[in-house]
């Protein structure tokens, strides 16, 4: 059985994490699955302008950076009950399909398998969301997003980042962001409050975050038929990370 690298970065500054994220994609250590928990922070999608998407006056306590993939803001509150993951894989049309939505679906399958393990009715909602719907419901009626994901590609490899919410402060997210009404018009929901959910709410109790990560790791191994072996960044990746750090800390990158 193939062995892929696994790293748990723990609680991290998001600027350091985004530099390591890019270094893993552009390094040569092979397929890797990794976790991290962000300190209080906001990550902008590649095409988002900070002054448009954020209520900057309310973001003063947050570390803000930008990632190399598209999609929307990733917001991490003080609760720290969010599992963030990354996957770097070689696009091979089997485990990691060339088709963009197909590859999102494949990786999001790990999250779906994890949620099903906890007895939830989870599904993939293209392009990049995992939703939970009440049982006995067909389609995506009543669907609430529990995980957002973002992918980029580089020289035949993909990097996907995503988050699984265990708890989430919606009111705080609304306070720091400028999300217009248009965002929800086609989702048949009145507001973001109805469109999001998290594991603690769905289960009616708190699960240990390490336990959930353990399930995700096992579901990853099952889905890709690989054994994950704990490792660390190589010297080359560390050097690359160090060279990328100034970008993730710079106002030119974040507020461009």
């Amino acid at each position: 059985m193939n062995r892929w690298r696994f790293i748990d970065f723990g609680l991290v500054d998001i600027r350091d994490m985004m530099a390591m994220d890019e270094a893993i994609l552009k390094g040569d250590e092979g397929n890797t699955f990794f976790f991290w928990t962000p300190k209080k922070s906001i990550i902008l999608g590649y095409f988002q302008k900070a002054e448009v998407e954020l209520n900057l006056a309310n973001c003063k306590e947050y570390t803000i950076t930008r990632r190399i993939s598209g999609g929307g803001i990733a917001f991490s509150d003080d609760l720290g009950r969010q599992i963030n993951y990354g996957v770097v894989g070689t696009i091979d049309n089997d485990l990691f399909p060339l088709d963009i939505i197909g590859s999102y679906k494949q990786i999001c399958g790990v999250l779906i398998d994890t949620l099903i393990h906890y007895g939830l009715n989870a599904a993939f909602r293209p392009i990049n969301d995992v939703v939970v719907t009440p049982y006995l419901n067909t389609g995506t009626k009543g669907a609430r997003k529990i995980s957002g994901n973002a992918q980029t590609r580089w020289e035949g490899k993909l990097l996907q980042n995503g988050t699984l919410l265990l708890d989430f402060d919606i009111e705080e997210m609304l306070r720091i962001s400028n999300i217009p009404r248009e965002k929800f018009l086609d989702k048949k929901i009145a507001s973001i409050r109805e469109g999001l959910t998290w594991l603690d709410r769905e289960l009616g109790e708190q699960r240990d975050m390490e336990e959930v990560k353990g399930i995700m790791k096992r579901k990853f191994e099952e889905r890709f038929n690989v054994r994950l072996k704990t490792g660390k960044l190589s010297e080359k990746e560390t050097a690359l990370t160090n060279s990328l750090l100034p970008k993730y800390y710079s106002p030119e990158w974040v507020f461009r």
């Binding site: 999608g45 590649y46 095409f47 988002q48 302008k49 448009v52 998407e53 190399i68 993939s69 598209g70 999609g71 929307g72 803001i73 963009i100 392009i127 990049n128 973002a150 992918q151 980029t152 590609r153």
Partner: peptide, 10 residues
């Protein structure tokens, strides 16, 4: 332009 869409290559 600002938005939460995806576009490759970025």
């Amino acid at each position: 332009v600002s938005g939460d869409f995806f576009l490759f290559p970025e």
